[in-house]
Amino acid sequence: MSELKRKLPGSISGKPLNRGRPEYILRLFVSGILQNSVRAVRNVSRICEEHLKDNYELEIIDIYQRPDLATSEQIIVVPVMIIKSPLPERRIIGDLSNVSMVLEALNCL
């Protein structure tokens, strides 16, 4: 828990492998430390480390602290992960416990 709290909010960055810019740019919107959000952060961290190592940029945003971003990014349900890159932009909703769905959305299967 304390580890998560420290990470929230902020960005977790994997170092890019070959290029200057990582292939995957991800934004995860969570709501404080509510159960779904905590699970989502845990899941996304694992998925990124396991599948997108050194090729991703992950920003975790707490909508309690940034309600303006919740509005501008049209957040209605949380947790939600916006895949900004690669295009097209997609949204994965839920606590990301369905790993195969997440990977499918990330085109990592």
Partner: peptide, 17 residues
């Protein structure tokens, strides 16, 4: 069409807004 469901979620975004 943009939403891919992968797990449990709630309407907290709506509440916050």
């Amino acid at each position: 069409s943009q939403n891919i469901a992968a797990g449990r979620y709630d309407l907290e975004g709506l509440f916050v807004r």
